[in-house]
Simulated scan of single mutants.
Amino acid sequence: MIAETILQMRLYAMYFLDKKILCLMVGTFLLTSASAAAVINIAVNRMTALSRVPLVPDMTLCIPMSIPPYIYAFWIPILAFETLLFVLAVLRGIQTYRQTGTTFQSNKRLVGLLVRDSIAYYAVMFATYLTCLLIFVFNVQLLEVPIGFSIAFSCVLGNRVILNVRKVNEEVKSESGNTRLRGNMAFNKGSSGTNAEHESDTLTDFEMAQLRSLRAESLEGSHIVV
């Protein structure tokens, strides 16, 4: 449940808070949860349990009996919902990479990370849920074996998505800060160079006095020749 909420929030942000996408995801999520809950509720009500089954010396086991054969349908809505989230993430990634402009160029790195994590999450969790479905189909007596693993793996991958986004966000902030610092240094350097050029073009008082004296001497020499 937590991992699915994280994925929906991420897609909602990727689509710039589009209400239609939010309604689609939330509506599908509620429908998926209701369908899976209905299947497992009907199956559990028709199941029986056999307790005190000897496993090893001094150890007994409780195993489920009379498991309905359609219990594998529990995983079908979950697989469908994961596929929907995967398709939405890929479509958004394609739309972003087709855009041009500074704003979209700066967002491509973050969107690329989100799309990459979406593909990785879908590939791993789809394989996990499909394995659970196949176990429910071919050996339903082992139905408790993969459930804990699938729940734990979903939470771990969801947290990894958050950590990856935080890491990229810090890197983008650091790069933008370095770019701004280099720009300020270049501006200050250019300003100081311009001031130096103006200062080199401006004569000092001593140089102006020498220039006046040379001009006076040239004028006196011209009067003598005449």
Rank of each mutant, 00 (worst) to 15 (best):
L114F: 01
C132R: 03
E171T: 06
N178S: 13
L181W: 13
V90W: 05
G148Y: 09
L110W: 03
M125D: 00
V172R: 11
F187W: 08
M125I: 14
A152V: 06
I135Q: 07
I151A: 08
N184A: 07
V165Y: 04
T194M: 13
G158K: 03
L157E: 02
Q105S: 07
F104N: 03
L163P: 01
Y129P: 00
V124Y: 01
I119P: 00
M185Y: 03
L143R: 02
F187L: 07
A152D: 03
G190E: 09
A89N: 03
S176N: 15
E82I: 04
V140C: 01
T83E: 04
R160P: 00
R180I: 12
Q105F: 06
V111H: 06
L114T: 00
V111P: 00
V124W: 01
V111W: 01
I147K: 02
T194P: 01
I147R: 05
L163R: 12
L84Q: 06
T83M: 12
A80F: 15
M125E: 02
Q141L: 04
N164C: 10
P146I: 08
V172H: 08
A186C: 04
V165G: 05
N188L: 14
E199D: 15
F149N: 06
T179M: 13
V124Q: 07
E170I: 02
V156R: 04
K167L: 12
R92V: 09
A186V: 08
D117H: 09
E170F: 13
R98Y: 12
G158Q: 07
E144C: 08
I151M: 02
F81I: 02
